[in-house]
Simulated assay, not measured.
Amino acid sequence: MEPIPVTTEPAAYLAADEAIDHEHPVVRETASRLRATASTPYEYARTAFTFVRDTIPHSADSGDRRVTWRASDVLGLGTGICHAKSHALAALLRAEGIPAGLCYQRLTEDDGSGAVLHGLNAILLPGRTRWARIDVRGNIPGVVDARFSLDQEQLAWPVRPALGEADSPWVHAAPAPQVLAALREAPDRTRLALPTELPAGPRTESPA
């Protein structure tokens, strides 16, 4: 599936906001440290991806009940669900001038019940004309094997249309309001109520 940006304004995918707060000192310090090991934008993006995927545990895997949603908090506290981790990666990429956005999938349990919205990223590296989706959810040995790949997607969860799962093609410049509201209002992860419907595209939603 080819990701489609919700706006043709490039600056939207480099902007800082309350969740993707890439001007925060924690984000800047982390970006600087990662940049020191990378000589090209591609290497930096891959390094940032691996850092968020592997060194920040998904809170459901680690049992951490804290709910983070700001990129700086995800990096500072070292925890977050998929949406929070995608905010962190977007911030690290934007801090180095790499356009990054947010994408969503509607996933279910194996029997088609328990729908939930999954969050991931899309990036546009210099010299490339197509966005690429990448997923920093965090791998689970034998279950999830998401990798950094710009030409062939290797996401955490391939969708299963027969179970009602679906991919959204849109690359959002800012977190979906309903996702952000759920994260901000949850007292802890066990009481987090994420939406189940995919965010609307640009025909009914004004791009950030």
Rank of each mutant, 00 (worst) to 15 (best):
A173S: 12
E185I: 01
A12G: 04
S59Q: 13
P3E: 09
E197N: 05
A95P: 00
R106D: 05
I123C: 15
P99L: 15
S86Q: 10
H24R: 07
E9F: 06
L92S: 06
A91D: 03
D188G: 03
S206G: 11
A208L: 10
R65C: 04
E23C: 06
H24L: 00
S32F: 10
D54W: 13
G80A: 03
C82P: 08
D64C: 13
Y13S: 06
D135S: 09
P169Y: 03
V26G: 03
L125W: 04
I20S: 01
P158D: 14
H87W: 11
A12D: 10
L180K: 05
R203Q: 14
G97K: 06
Q178E: 12
R28Y: 10
T55N: 15
R106N: 05
T79H: 07
G127N: 04
A115T: 07
S62K: 14
W131P: 02
E9Q: 15
P41A: 13
Q178D: 12
L92M: 08
A16P: 06
I20A: 06
E96S: 11
L183R: 02
A90Q: 02
G164V: 11
R128A: 15
M1A: 13
G112Y: 11
P169K: 05
A31D: 10
A115Q: 07
L183K: 00
T204Q: 14
Y44Q: 04
H83C: 05
A60T: 08
L117R: 00
A88M: 10
R191N: 07
Y42N: 00
H118Q: 12
P187K: 15
H87D: 09
A166F: 07
A84E: 02
L125M: 10
E205D: 03
T55Q: 14
P57N: 09
A115F: 08
H83A: 13
I123T: 15
T55A: 15
D64K: 05
P10R: 13
S72G: 02
S39F: 10
P99V: 15
D64F: 08
R70W: 00
P5Y: 01
S86G: 08
R189T: 06
I140V: 15
Y13M: 11
Q178C: 01
R203I: 09
P99K: 14
A91P: 04
Q154S: 14
A16D: 09
A181W: 00
A100T: 03
K85T: 02
S39V: 10
F51W: 12
D64S: 13
H24T: 00
Q105G: 07
T204H: 15
R70Q: 11
D54E: 15
A174R: 08
A186H: 09
L102V: 07
R53W: 03
G97N: 08
T7G: 01
L198Q: 04
A186W: 02
Y42A: 01
A11N: 12
L92Q: 05
T47G: 04
V143Q: 14
